[in-house]
Design a protein around this nucleic acid. Structure first.
Length: 479
RNA sequence: GGCCUCAUGGUCAAGCGGUUAAGACGCAGCCCUCUCAAGGCUGAAUCACGGGUUCGAUUCCCGUUGGGGCUACCA
């Protein structure tokens, strides 16, 4: 059996969105699973929709996410060029061959004539008018400089069938397929032609793409057959939806990979999550690295129905990655987000980061988790009241001076020491440690809930600031 | 409109004629805990509808409904 070769063929019309990335991912996983090649091809035949810079975004996204290709415009390969606009002559050459083979024909009809072909329901259907032109007529028109397109010659009768590895047997009657344009009047091919020529010339064995091509595949097969080429294996993928009725798409301005990365989602989690959207390993394992995914990927786990992107679950997965990340790794990724916190620069970086780790799902949540450190101020005394912890304003009044005294004597200021002395104090005072720690925490933060406990926070604040805040609270209680 | 296609809890999903219909996220409750978070346990919640086929349908067939796609000199 020949080597598996799959491809991802995006058009450079903007950023690379999540749905496109998943298509790329599946192509990548499938090829790697079978030790094959994964090719990147840029489909830029529509010059009008071209967006500057988007090719670079595609390169960057694929590299950054780990969905890396073996051949492509910027890495080379033996089947180039990998940019369609650079293959113009190739398409023209093959289009002529197809005309020779009877699979296509020149068409000189004006837009006006085409428009006049509307039927009662307003549908357009080309009437094969130019198919009747003799070879001589065609040649003289071309010579005279008349603009033309090349159309596919689809049979009026019969049925095109093929087997899709996800959707099974698909059949479309040829009468329902138009004689679509293969070469535009500007000499560029349309997707409908370029994809066939390129996939064949590049040796693509498995075509993995979205379902939007499911019903147009029979017309591509017509071309493979007319050329006498072997048809590739087809694997169509269900779409990723934004909600029940809208597909995630860049045309709608939906989220891209880089948007998620910028918001602080762990990249591995993004890939992991989208791998699971529309595919199931059939085991209960959900957290998987790219390597795990390659190992477990299989076509029969791909589902046929659309799946809705669930941001909540994607964040959860991201949080799982953060929890399991080494501190060093976490720090290197989180530091840029820490800088957005009010507390940044005022306290020890590692301590701030530790406070947030385990409490966030995406890195951009860091500031909101630790900003309270810099928001100590006019809090409500009723916060000292807590039945469950057996804490009260009265108790706070009596023990806060003791807490201050005890802390003042601490020389080695760190979390475990602080915890030790305060627990010791609570037993000496014969009160629950929970009550004492609750009071201490409220006294130094002024918040009902905080990321971190009393001693953990005191550790971050440092001795001077902790004592100062306790003084403020004592004064407040006695006011 | 025509054609293609899809349909299991709120979401992702396993299931592939006989199951107490997995699991995960989320949600609720309890436990644990230095508040929060994390962790542990428990719980609520699903086979779109109607016909068949079959001893028996979530599973197979047909239809209805609903969703998506194609129907461009876009991909």
């Amino acid at each position: 059996m020949s080597k598996v070769r799959t491809r991802f063929a995006p058009s450079p019309t903007g950023y690379l969105h999540i749905g496109g990335l998943r298509t790329a991912l599946y192509g990548f996983l499938y090829s790697k699973k079978y030790d094959g090649d994964f090719i990147l091809r840029i489909e830029d035949t529509d010059t009008a929709r071209y967006v500057d810079g988007s090719v670079q975004i595609i390169y960057d996204t694929m590299r950054d996410s780990g969905v890396m290709y073996d051949e492509g415009p910027d890495v080379g390969g033996n089947f180039g060029p990998y940019v369609q606009s650079e293959r113009r002559d190739i398409y023209l050459e093959y289009a002529k061959k197809l005309v020779e083979a009877g699979g296509a024909y020149y068409c000189f009809c004006s837009h006006e004539r085409i428009a006049s072909l509307k039927d009662e329901e307003g549908n357009l259907r080309y009437d094969k008018h130019c198919l009747k032109l003799s070879k001589e007529e065609v040649e003289s028109k071309i010579k005279a400089g008349e603009p033309y397109v090349i159309r596919q010659n689809v049979p009026l009768e019969g049925t095109g069938s093929y087997h899709d590895l996800v959707y099974g047997d698909i059949s479309v009657d040829y009468k329902d397929i138009e004689d679509g344009i293969l070469i535009k009047s500007d000499g560029m091919p349309t997707y409908n032609f370029a994809n066939v020529v390129d996939d064949h010339l590049m040796g693509i064995t498995h075509v993995i793409r979205g379902t939007e091509y499911l019903s147009s595949t029979p017309k591509y097969n017509l071309m493979y057959d007319a050329f006498g080429w072997e048809r590739p294996v087809y694997i169509h993928l269900p779409p990723i939806m934004k909600d029940a009725q809208h597909k995630l798409s860049k045309r709608n301005g939906d989220a891209s990979y880089e948007d998620f990365v910028n918001k602080g989602y762990v990249k591995e989690a993004i890939i992991n999550y989208i791998a699971l959207l529309g595919w199931s390993p059939k085991t209960n394992t959900e957290k998987m690295s790219l390597t795990d995914l390659i190992e477990n990927f299989s076509l029969d786990g791909i589902s046929k129905s659309p799946s809705i992107f669930d941001d909540v679950k994607c964040r959860w997965l991201s949080g799982e990655y953060i929890k399991e990340m080494s501190f060093e790794e976490y720090k290197s990724r989180a530091i840029g987000f820490l800088k957005n916190s009010k507390a940044y620069g005022k306290y020890d970086e590692d301590k701030l980061l530790s406070l947030a780790k385990g409490r966030i799902q995406i890195f951009s949540e860091i500031p909101e988790k630790i900003d309270f450190l810099e928001e100590f101020g006019d809090y409500d005394l009723s916060l000292f009241e807590n039945q469950k912890q057996k804490a009260s304003i009265e108790l706070a009044k009596t023990i806060l001076p003791e807490i201050k005294q005890t802390l003042s004597n601490v020389t080695d200021w760190n979390n475990s020491n602080l915890f030790g002395v305060l627990v010791e104090l609570s037993s000496k005072l014969e009160i629950k440690k929970q009550a004492l720690l609750w009071i201490a925490r409220i006294a130094i933060t002024g918040f009902e809930s905080t990321a971190g406990g009393a001693t953990e926070i005191a550790d971050v604040l440092g001795k001077d600031e902790t004592i100062r805040r306790i003084d403020v609270s004592i004064e407040k209680l006695n006011a």
